[in-house]
Computed example of a mutant assay.
Amino acid sequence: MTAPTLENNRVKLSLLDLSNYNSLEAIAQEKDLIYYSPSDISSPEKLRDYVQLAVDGYYQKTIIPFIIYDKQKQAYAGSTRFGLINRKNKVLHIGWTWIGHDFQGTGLNNNMKFLMLQYAFETLGFEKVEFRIDERNKKSRRAVEKLGASLEGILRKDTVMKDGYRRSTCCYGILKEEWPTIKSTIFKTF
């Protein structure tokens, strides 16, 4: 499996690995960047472990991790990935997304998600893309809803957070047959 490079005039997503993750060390240190995630990237060592798990998943063909480069700001902005890739059922998740505070609200995330959805549906031929979000994370939930994803249900207290809190996870999805309408309405400027 080769990792694609997904790119438009605003953003470039390329394979995140142990040769480039250190470009994200400063951003990973930003306060509350992944507050709603059970992952921990709060130190260079923990960031390396986070990337190592993603790389392991890449070689097991269940993850494609990306490093995000913002072409407008000419800077690395964060990380995202395809995860829980299920080739038999043609379903994957988009998530594990974190971008530095200076990149949030700039349109970068919409550009990334467009490229990822387009690749999942049009190149890989997957039938469904899912998103899993902490029920408390209103900002991320609104962002996914604006992409056209439908709330399919809530997994109650299914994930243990770093502080021991048991979060409930909102499950969103976009179906392949919904993609053309979403692409032509929500992403009409892309």
Rank of each mutant, 00 (worst) to 15 (best):
G83I: 05
D158H: 12
R136F: 12
D158I: 00
R136C: 05
D102C: 05
G95A: 02
G83W: 12
V144I: 15
R136Y: 11
N137Y: 08
M112N: 01
R132H: 11
K146L: 14
Q104F: 07
L117E: 06
L84S: 12
E127K: 05
R156K: 12
G83T: 06
I85L: 03
D158Y: 04
K139H: 11
H93P: 00
F82A: 08
N86L: 02
L108K: 08
K128T: 05
S140W: 08
S150T: 15
M112P: 01
Y69V: 03
A75Y: 13
E122K: 08
E127N: 11
D163T: 09
L108F: 09
F126Q: 00
M112C: 11
E152C: 11
F126P: 02
M116C: 09
E135K: 09
S79M: 10
T80E: 06
R136Q: 13
K73A: 14
R87K: 12
L115K: 10
W98A: 12
T123H: 12
D102V: 05
N109P: 07
V129D: 00
F126C: 01
K113S: 12
G125T: 06
G153Y: 08
R141E: 13
S150D: 15
T106V: 04
D102I: 08
D70K: 02
L117M: 12
E152T: 08
N111L: 01
F131E: 01
F103L: 00
Q72T: 12
W96Y: 14
R132D: 06
I85S: 03
N137H: 14
A143K: 09
M112L: 11
R136S: 09
G105S: 04
N137G: 10
G125I: 05
G153K: 05
N86K: 01
A143H: 10
R81G: 12
V91M: 02
V160Q: 14
A75T: 13
F131W: 08
T106R: 04
V91P: 00
G78E: 10
L151F: 10
K128H: 03
N109R: 03
K73L: 14
W98C: 08
N89D: 11
L124R: 08
Q104I: 01
I94E: 00
V144Y: 10
K138V: 15
R156D: 06
H93N: 10
Q104H: 08
G105Q: 01
I94C: 01
G105A: 07
W96T: 14
K162L: 15
L84M: 10
K90Q: 11
R141P: 09
F103H: 04
G105L: 06
R141D: 11
R87G: 03
G105D: 02
I133G: 06
K73W: 01
K73N: 13
Q74I: 07
D70T: 01
D134G: 06
